[in-house]
Design a protein around this nucleic acid. Structure first.
Length: 153
DNA sequence: CGAGTTTGACCTGCGC
DNA sequence: GCGCAGGTCAAACTCG
């Protein structure tokens, strides 16, 4: 099977972003799909505005999977969203300014993992960038937290 | 000169 | 209790 991406990589997002979204992953918990990521992959987010496809914290209403959110009522769970993007560079400008604060070699991947933090004072949003193991052409960006400000642009 | 990047070291959590 | 892996910090360096 050469085609490991049964999903349509051709999204209209390429009209706004210099790259193409391959998959949109939503983490409700700290579970990462190992063999079967399919149930974790939500539908392709269709972008009709100039804003990002997902809420990076601008509005404060992240995309929710299940309607019941009784679990996150107990404590404040940071929103964890992962994007699989096809790009040669890992520096994807999503409208926010990031400051790199660390780099680490993960054992599950021969590629290093970069850690970014929002440069905005008071905004503690973190971002993790890692290249795909099977497809080095793809970059997995994981956002953690919620922006308390609109954007830099 | 300042912000941002780099790299290694240090800390913490988890599994065995 | 120890070792491993992941995550974060901080000093030094680079670039604008």
């Amino acid at each position: 099977m050469t085609d490991k991406n049964p999903y349509s990589p051709e999204l209209d997002l390429t009209n706004q972003w210099p790259l193409e979204f391959s998959e949109y992953l939503k983490f409700d918990e700290d579970e990462w799909p190992d063999d079967n990521p399919e149930p974790f992959i939500a539908e392709h987010v269709t972008n009709q505005d100039n804003e990002l496809v997902a809420d990076f914290g601008g509005s404060g209403s992240p995309i929710e999977g299940p309607a019941s959110s009784s679990e996150r009522e107990k404590k404040e769970v940071k929103d964890k969203v992962a994007f699989k993007t096809k790009s040669e560079v890992e520096i994807l400008d999503d409208g926010f300014k990031w400051r790199k604060y660390g780099k680490k070699m993960v054992k599950n991947s021969p590629n290093p993992r970069n850690y970014y933090k929002c440069s905005k004072d008071g905004c503690q949003v973190k971002k993790r960038v890692e290249r795909d193991v099977d497809d080095p052409s793809y970059v997995i960006t994981t956002y953690e937290g919620t922006h308390t400000h609109p954007s830099f642009h």
